[in-house]
Amino acid sequence: MAPVHHFLYLGAFLFSTGLIVIITKRNTIMVLLGLELMLNASNLNLVAFNSLHPGSLQGQMFALFVIVVAVCEAAVGLAIVLRVYRQYRTSVPDHVNELNQ
């Protein structure tokens, strides 16, 4: 069995990657993907920590609920992206700046 550290390193790496994706990609769907990546990174941590406590299920449960919430977030986020796209003909987040005008 691999040491827990390695799970955590991968989690940190995926989290940072998701952060970079969110900051740098000029496309709302890509930003959503980055968000999913970050959620998964945290999930990985939860599952890894749970493996240290075999009797309890709290980490796994948390991970499950995170997945469910991520589903909701993805569905609603995508719907918003589609609507924004229809409205403004753009999927670049910075172009939707009507309130800034």
Binding site: I22, I23, T24, R26, V31, P93, D94, N97, L99, N100
Partner: peptide
Amino acid sequence: QGGKIQLYIFWAA
């Protein structure tokens, strides 16, 4: 705060 969301995230991070 030029209305660029990603810049906000950058500063937050």
